[in-house]
């Protein structure tokens, strides 16, 4: 399907929002640079990552296309989540973590000295394995990010909360209990609330680390449907243990594996999901996805 949403719309929307925020300077500069729809949103070149002496990832070179869902699959401990966390520098928070090689967002090296990491995490949002709403009201959860960015106007906040909850396909279920505790929502609703919380700060990329692993099949289906809707606007990368979920929701798939215990994870194959699940190129991918190892 041809994506007809013009990139300029997104840029304008993001720019407008940025202007409303107190600290919008880096984004303003970046958004003025032309970006082509066909160019990848995220690229890595010879990316390696270590936790102290342990090398978790080695020589990762991938290109994540924009307005699509890219799945990262692979056996437990292969470095899937570590790779995902490189995309918004979440690994910076882990002591002893060292990254070499390049990770670029829209052509800009996010590990370059002086890169605004706070802005990066706003641009590249993250949803985690277990729903982790703040112990606050539904409204305050979604309004948290915009408030932190300096939005004080109540009407504007109301609008952002409503729009974000609508985009996260949660509005109809919670519009009558916005002032109720988020902790009273079901697991699936809490996870969509977390997605709404990410959307409220107008990200461009959403990283999802096994977002459905704690959800029942119905809630999982709701989240998967939501991802399909969101990909018209956002670039998404999802780590999943569930290969069928990768096959169902993603446009592109990266298969990461370690050859032997203690060795770093490497991308064995990266490509079109249809092709990977019907006719993978690498024999190791085939053995993994058909359950012949791992």
């Amino acid at each position: 399907m041809v994506d007809e949403t013009p990139i300029d719309d997104t840029k304008t929307r993001i720019s407008e929002y940025s202007r409303r925020c107190a600290d919008s300077f880096t984004r303003e500069t970046r958004m003025e640079e032309p970006t082509k729809e066909s160019e990848p949103r995220i690229t890595t070149d010879s990316l390696s990552m270590s936790y102290g002496e342990f090398k978790a990832l080695e020589d990762i070179t991938v290109q994540v296309p924009r307005r699509s869902i890219t799945a990262i699959i692979g056996p437990s401990g292969c470095g899937k989540s570590s790779l995902l966390r490189c995309f918004n520098r979440m690994n910076d928070l882990v002591e002893g973590c060292r990254v070499t090689g390049e990770v670029k967002l829209d052509g800009e090296d996010i590990y370059a000295p002086g890169y605004d990491v706070i802005q990066l995490r706003r641009t590249v949002g993250m949803v985690f394995q277990r729903p982790n709403p703040f112990p606050k009201t539904v409204y305050d959860n979604v309004a948290y990010g915009p408030r932190l960015s300096g939005v004080k106007d109540k009407e504007r906040l109301n609008r952002v909360v409503e729009e974000s909850l609508k985009k996260a396909a949660l509005w109809e279920e919670v519009k009558g209990k916005l002032k109720g505790s988020a902790m009273n929502l079901s697991g699936g609703q809490q996870q969509r609330l977390c997605i709404a919380r990410v959307l409220a700060v107008e990200p461009e990329v959403i990283l999802l680390d096994e977002p459905c692993s704690a959800l029942d099949p119905v809630a999982t289906q709701r989240v998967e449907d939501l991802l399909a809707e969101l990909k018209e606007r956002y670039t998404m990368v999802i780590v999943t243990h569930n290969m069928q979920q990768a096959a169902r929701v993603s446009d592109f798939t990266a298969f990461v594996m370690i050859e032997n215990q203690g060795e770093p994870g490497k991308v064995v194959e990266f490509g079109d999901t249809n092709h990977m699940f019907t006719n993978p190129v690498d024999e190791r991918t085939e053995r993994y996805i058909t359950g012949r190892f791992g």
Partner: peptide, 9 residues
């Protein structure tokens, strides 16, 4: 079994 790749084919 939701087979894929060579198994599916």
């Amino acid at each position: 079994q939701a087979p894929v790749a060579i198994d599916l084919r």
